[in-house]
Nucleic acid binder design. Structure first.
Lengths: 195, 195, 195, 195
DNA sequence: CAATAACCGAGACGGTACGTCACGTCTTAGC
DNA sequence: GCTAAGACGTGACGTACCGTCTCGGTTATTG
């Protein structure tokens, strides 16, 4: 019988890997980011600390790997009927992601680390689930010829207000995503503003 | 003779307080937020650790007290000639604050903590240098009768794009604050958009 | 009230110190030298690991401090009537020390370490309970004018045979200390050999 | 064809065995006993750790096998002309072995282990290069009829002083082997003392 | 000449102790 | 009653080896 990994030596335990990623998720929810500890992850996962160090070098890396897929899924909304509905649905998803999702909690924690750790900054920027998802939605809702500003700036204008609202600690329930969507379209595609 | 603070015993040392706040600032610049440590502050300030614990309960509190005044100053811009200039100047100040200022580094660090520590969240929201300064500039540049959306949402639309741009790790130099200002005015005060 | 140590700060806990030294002794007897662990000492003593590191830098240092006083006591025999009795009594004490005493077990363990750790070598040589006690007994039993060889070599001739016998793993019960004493005197003080 | 080891399957690799023993010797000299590690041996020998565990159960066993033959050779001196020369030559060899020889370093390390590990004690006693070599020299230098004490005690008297001198950390250069030999003969064979 | 059996290297696994660091608390002496 | 000094217990850090356990491959002997 031939194993798939092709290299000599005992192959990496997929079970251990899954247990670790799962444990990180659980702990983040249970005890909060500050109290997530490599020791704690190891114990919760039933895995030795050394096994974690073998495959990840920082807490942030594990967290990112544990949440990246979920993050993309949660921000990947189904196509809607018309730009306003599209944008509104996306802003709803973004708000939910940032406030009520485990993956979102991980994202916010990583974003915090990124502010004083350039390694995490790179890591996060290379993943960038918000930027990517916003760009996707945007290209679907507003074609190039109606967009009055560069895509990258349009992304910031789309997600920025919600991003600031939530991260600065304002009440997410007080946001009106439909109005926000209208305002965004007024900025980014004035010709569509009357739709 | 009667002391001013009214209580018996040795009064609080103003010298120690200043030394601590100064040490926090220095350390933040020198070693970065991650390595700012209560032990380190105490040593740099020539103060005992107990003295710090007597007056502050968390690292975040000290950091906030050490940076709040600077933050307000740096975001308090001189009045400009016309809304566009006003908004542009403010966005410049905001970008500089978030990227090149010690107080801004402290703010970003605290914002990171706030994502997983509700006590810091409250603390930061009660200070809110960005929200306050944006509101001030806004009321100066765009009177109520030309503002097409609620003030609180206007604040988010004003600072949100820049906020997201910087905190998500994008290159600050690639921002065009003048265009950003124009876009904001198009959103918030369509009647002024032709100015 | 004035404390004795004269320095500022919390004074060293004599209770912790005693508990540590006691725990080392206990552990050495219970689990053997190889299994004596700093972690184990700390737990047995009800003391934090850090407290141990604060005052000692190696396991050997603790062990030496814990056993040095006992070692000297056990090798300090009461004066006897005549050289032969004196030497015999000393060799008995030495054998008991090396085979049946906790302090002796510590000494043998340290001697082992000293064979491949020069720091321990120095430490042990500076304490040297066997050399010192042998010299004392020797000067009491055989005055200078009857001693046919240098004191330092006499010490080696006195303790060497027993030392080798025990450390090389030979059966201590098969030693005849009285005959050993006679042989030593024949070597060191031929003029007394007929006593 | 019939293999020598009699069993089916691939025979033990003599090359691996030699590489391991050689690596142990090298490491002992290079990094000192304390830092000799099974992992290190395996890497230095270019051998897997499992291969070592297959054939030896402890570090001590490998060390003994690696040094036993050398030890015997170094302590097996050429016959000399007369008892004094014989004994002196042997003590010289013994001193050199214990202080300047790789095999001697291994022996001292094992002796240290033997003090707190009875398995090593047995192992070492069953090899006993010092006891054996001393007995050989002794029987050559002093026939039974001139020996005033049992052979086993004579062995201790012969090697004990040197053994203690070296292992207790005293300066080997300060030993006078010729005088030591004379003293030994005075003890063990008084009738020859005038030779 | 295949099948079998025991070896070999590589390397991941769960453990355990290491020595260090910062934490928050405490107990002194001094002002 | 505040201060500096500094020891205390606690607990996570990242590292090093331990002994065990798969893996893919490699020899020899045996049927």
């Amino acid at each position: 019988m031939v194993s798939e990994h092709g290299k000599a030596g005992r192959p990496r335990s997929e079970q251990a890997r899954a247990a670790i990623l799962h444990a990180v998720d659980d702990l983040l929810v249970d005890v909060g980011y500050g109290a997530v500890t490599l020791k704690g992850i190891a114990e919760r996962a039933g895995v030795s600390r050394q096994t974690i160090y073998r495959w990840w070098s920082t807490k942030a890396e594990i967290l990112l790997e544990a949440s990246a897929i979920d993050a993309r899924q949660e921000l990947d909304i189904a196509p809607q009927d018309g730009p306003v509905a599209e944008i509104t649905a996306y802003l709803d998803a973004l708000r939910t992601f940032l406030t009520n999702s485990d993956a979102g909690a991980a994202y916010r924690a990583l974003l915090g680390e990124a502010q004083h750790d350039s390694a995490v900054r790179e890591l996060l920027l290379s993943s960038d689930p918000i930027g990517d998802s916003a760009a996707t939605v945007l290209s679907r809702a507003l074609p190039d010829d109606v967009l009055a500003l560069p895509r990258s700036r349009a992304v910031s204008s789309l997600v920025g207000p919600t991003f600031f609202w939530v991260l600065s600690g304002r009440d997410p329930a007080a946001m009106n995503t439909h109005d926000l969507a209208l305002e965004f379209i007024r900025t980014a595609a004035p010709s569509h503003a009357s739709d």
